[in-house]
Design a protein around this nucleic acid. Structure first.
Lengths: 127, 127
DNA sequence: CGTAATCGACTACATCTGTAAACGTGAACG
DNA sequence: CGTTCACGTTTACAGATGTAGTCGATTACG
């Protein structure tokens, strides 16, 4: 029904790490992605598998570059964050962002810096 | 290292639905849980499997009641929400709650009611 | 008492996920 | 020109998850 980045396909945690690398800098070769996600200590094979799966899920596109491929994110980071954070707020707090906020506040999960920024954002919105 | 509700074991989405039923009202029999999560249209067998897995994960405890069991949440809702929301904020927003908030704000995911509540909470915290 | 209903426990099985090796092919190098 | 690299593709496999059927014991009903 459309050729947009398929938002319906769920992206797993490991895949998300790959997406993050590509969101930070793209296009990248498989090797570069492997380096970029270095913290995970994945074998190159693993990274290739994840990239393939992401291509299948249409979250990443490829562009031939000589004998290899350059990978770029097709799914925008914003769209992904939007979907995921909405899912989470829905699932955990019945869709109430205020519920989430209340929880973070109660559990001391908010740093003073967070509070300042949030306050500033609120003022901005209310302006 | 402790006999507390095992926070380490991840709870899946389906399992979370069961936990929600138990958090809303407990103890419940397997049948009652099945009714409580009615929206999911699971067979009773499925609910029983999920309950078993939750017991294994030590997120739910049982108490014999004649020939059957009464199930109660062992893992507190607050603890679960805390863990999950933290995970999400870490994963998606590099640990910045303000980042999450900014995203929700930008994507128009905040209702006026949310804004009011958050503002009130902020004032409360700052008091 | 015998049989049916009820329960939890065990088993089943297709997907998805994490992780990676094996394979085939074309390019680069000696 | 043959062999080794470098890549993408295919295949593998264990563990988690979604979903549910089967089994054995126990209870309740007739």
């Amino acid at each position: 029904m459309s050729d947009e980045p398929d938002t319906g396909e769920r992206i797993s945690e490991a895949e998300h790490a790959v997406m993050t690398a590509l969101w930070n800098r793209a296009p990248l070769t498989a090797n570069e992605v492997a380096e970029a996600v270095g913290s995970r200590a994945w074998s190159l094979a693993t990274v290739k598998t994840l990239l393939s799966r992401l291509v299948t899920k249409q979250a990443v596109t490829t562009e031939p570059d000589g004998k290899r491929f350059l990978y770029s994110p097709s799914l925008a980071r914003e769209a992904y964050l939007g979907g995921e954070s909405r899912r989470m707020v829905d699932r955990l707090f019945g869709g109430s962002a205020a519920g989430l906020f209340a929880h973070l506040a109660e559990s001391e999960a908010l740093t003073p810096a967070d509070l300042d920024q949030i306050e500033a954002l609120l003022r901005e919105i209310r302006k």
